[in-house]
């Protein structure tokens, strides 16, 4: 029915992992959206940047460590990962702390990009 239509989907991730389920369930929507051959962008801002922190060890909280999935996004042709520059700095993080390659953007650039989207989902 919707075959052939390609829309620009943006996922705005603003929550840290594990404290709530949003990061994990957002990732599940991202993967399905890619399976529909849509144009997918991921934005990490506010505490959402913590989702990409290297070295997550979840054994002690008996939760699944889903951070390796971010590294697998490449295989789903999801390559547009954007991180808000100011959010990183505010959390004492740099690009080197992240487990995937991202494009670091200023808040103004992010806002402009958001405006160009067809569907914006936030978790």
């Amino acid at each position: 029915m919707s075959e052939g239509t390609i829309k620009k989907f943006m996922f705005v991730n603003r929550t840290a992992p594990y404290g709530t389920i949003y990061a994990l369930e957002s990732l599940e929507v991202v993967l399905i959206t890619a399976a529909f051959d849509q144009d997918v962008s991921l934005v990490f801002m506010d505490d959402g940047v913590f989702q990409l922190k290297k070295g997550q060890q979840t054994k002690g909280i008996e939760n699944k460590n889903f951070s390796p999935t971010y590294r697998a996004l490449d295989g789903y042709d999801i390559e547009k990962l954007y991180v808000e520059e100011e959010a990183l700095a505010a959390r004492g993080l740099t690009e080197d702390d992240l487990l995937v390659d991202v494009t670091v953007m200023s808040r103004a650039e992010l806002g402009k990009l958001m405006d160009e989207m067809d569907v914006v989902l936030s978790y």
Binding site: M1, S2, T5, I32, F36, Q38, V119
Partner: peptide, 20 residues
Amino acid sequence: SGLGQLVEAGIEADRLVTFG
């Protein structure tokens, strides 16, 4: 049904509004 129903709704509708 599956999550694909959400994506499909996003594709087919003119607007998708989230409440949470």
